[in-house]
Design a protein around this nucleic acid. Structure first.
Lengths: 211, 211
DNA sequence: TAGATTGTTAATCGATTAACAATC
DNA sequence: TAGATTGTTAATCGATTAACAATC
């Protein structure tokens, strides 16, 4: 990949936030912004913003600040928003359906091209115009279409098996919605959404705030 | 709250992971575990485990390790799993419906007692046995029932307004599913689930791995 | 030019890891 | 007792913040 130095995960996880804030600035028709102004909006230090951005290049101008539009374009490029990632959803339950209906993903470079399930009553149907296919046809489908990401919204009991299946078919990205930790031998990249972890942290914080 | 010292967020966010792994150990009928064994399973260092646990107390025994069941109980107590949090979902769309159907939350101490929406076609219906009520009745409902947490699955355009509304009614916990950052003046505790951020990070990681 | 603000180096802070005495 | 493993202190590492020279 174009970027040279090793970027820390702490920085990477902040990139989408920059993306969002810059997008908002554009919508507000703001043309330039200094690291100080942005830091006040985002609630982080100006130093951190400058450090973060300079991981990728010098996008600002001394005495001026940053041009909002060009900075937004840089962040977009870094995040690969203009890339197209082909995604499939595995599990057409409530969460899978919610994801299939989430229009935002497409604007971020993620196309959901099929949904897979084992339930014969669901197979053949569509969600948001996307066909629900049988798990039996997964292998053929992946052979015919380049698939970058599998979004796993299957029951916990099956997630390891499904994850092994999809990675064995060459899919490199796993977006895992099960609480299970996936430990895959191959080079798959796994990003977890642990909803109950998040909720439990909220519970902890509420209790320790005394509520 | 009972715990004395200031616990860092880094530690707090690891607690649900300990909880999950210990739960699995119990299911596997494993009675005792050393920090070293647990570190191998979890893929973190034994040092970190011992440091983390000792934020809350000395739960182990030199020369023996940790009793799985009693450690699990301690973590459960710390996370407040036996607490009951009353929750409402605002927004009966796909995500709200998915959350209402997620049975796991109840086992973690979170009871979803009502769903609110503005769509007259949805109001009066139920999801997983939970009634969908009109947003107009929110205020009265909150006055009659103690509500600890509002799970916000409303469109971006309304999330700030809704968040202000629920916190003004005295609800202290916000579980925010919109990409919007909520900045609330009052002492509300906000926990965000930024799905598209997570997906964009996955995209970044895939690209930088060269896939 | 003078003022502003970056890019970048240095200082600080916090979190992780290592080490080991205490002790079961 | 001898061996194992904790609890805890010290060392290291990395991330954040501060400072300031470079420069627009």
């Amino acid at each position: 990949m174009p970027e040279e130095k090793k970027i820390s995960m702490a920085v990477i996880r902040r990139l989408p936030r920059y993306f969002r804030y810059l997008h908002d600035l554009i919508k507000m028709d703001i043309k330039r912004i200094s690291s100080r102004e942005l830091s006040e909006r985002m609630g982080i230090t100006a130093s951190q913003i400058r450090q973060d951005l300079n991981c990728f290049g010098g996008f600002g101008q001394q005495g001026y600040g940053y041009n909002v539009e060009s900075l937004f374009n840089e962040i977009s490029r870094i995040l690969g928003v203009d890339n197209r990632f082909s995604c499939i959803i595995i599990g057409a339950g409530n969460m899978g359906t919610a994801l299939a209906n989430y229009e935002n993903f497409r604007n971020r470079g993620f196309d959901i091209i099929a949904i897979f399930d084992v339930d014969p009553r669901k197979i053949g149907g569509t969600v948001n115009g996307i066909e629900i296919m049988s798990m039996d046809s997964l292998e053929d489908f992946v052979k015919e279409h380049k698939v970058d990401i599998a979004m796993l919204t299957v029951p916990n009991t099956h997630v390891t098996e499904v994850a092994e299946k999809v990675t064995s078919l060459g899919i490199k990205g796993i977006w895992n919605f099960s609480p299970h930790e996936l430990r895959l031998g191959n080079g798959a990249i796994i990003e977890n959404v642990h909803l109950s972890d998040s909720l439990m942290v909220l519970g902890y914080r509420l209790r320790s705030a005394g509520y």
